[in-house]
């Protein structure tokens, strides 16, 4: 599956309070959560992000709380894919579980600037920077995680196995 969009660059240790502040955690509606995604971190993102855009971040993206509201808010905001050097472990699991594509790639994060146009091929594990013409490789997705994705998420995965 291919995604196209513009890059929104973020720094290191983007925590889940930055992604979705805890004061909104009594909300479960994805659309309502999306209205507050990254509002403390970058208010411009909230106003100008377009369907398909991508978040590009440094290390330890999604650290902090276990709130699944964080990947849900990002996905509902229309973000097609997150590219980071590394992820906090609970966020990593949560993203796969709810079907938010996330990619690990040091070289891509280095070679992408705010606003660059990107094309991501999830199957090939390739990130193309259409602004500069560079192509980057994503770290391969662990086969076990791929199985969860292929099944359509964790709930579908366990339902299939128990049948």
């Amino acid at each position: 599956m291919k995604h196209k969009g513009r890059a929104w660059k973020f720094g290191t240790n983007i925590d889940t309070d930055a992604i979705i502040p805890a004061r909104y955690l009594n909300v479960t509606d994805p659309k309502e959560l999306a209205q507050h995604c990254m509002e403390n971190e970058n208010p411009q993102f909230l106003k100008e992000v377009r369907e398909g855009d991508m978040i590009v971040a440094e290390t330890n993206f999604g650290c902090g709380s276990s709130r699944e509201h964080a990947p849900i808010a990002i996905k509902a905001k229309g973000i097609s894919c997150v590219i980071a050097k590394s992820y906090a472990r609970i966020f990593y699991r949560n993203a796969f579980n709810i079907g938010l594509p996330i990619i690990e790639s040091d070289e891509a994060v280095h070679g992408i600037q705010d606003g660059h146009k990107l094309e991501v091929d999830l199957e090939k594990g390739e990130i193309k920077n259409e602004t500069t013409g560079q192509i980057f490789k994503a770290n391969p997705i662990p086969p076990f995680m791929q199985k969860i994705i292929d099944d359509g998420g964790l709930i579908e995965h366990i339902t299939k196995r128990s049948c």
Binding site: S66, I90, R93, N94, N97, I98, I155
Partner: peptide, 10 residues
């Protein structure tokens, strides 16, 4: 260890 809501459901 901490997990998300979907992992907890599983």
């Amino acid at each position: 260890t901490g997990v998300g809501s979907t992992d907890l459901a599983a």
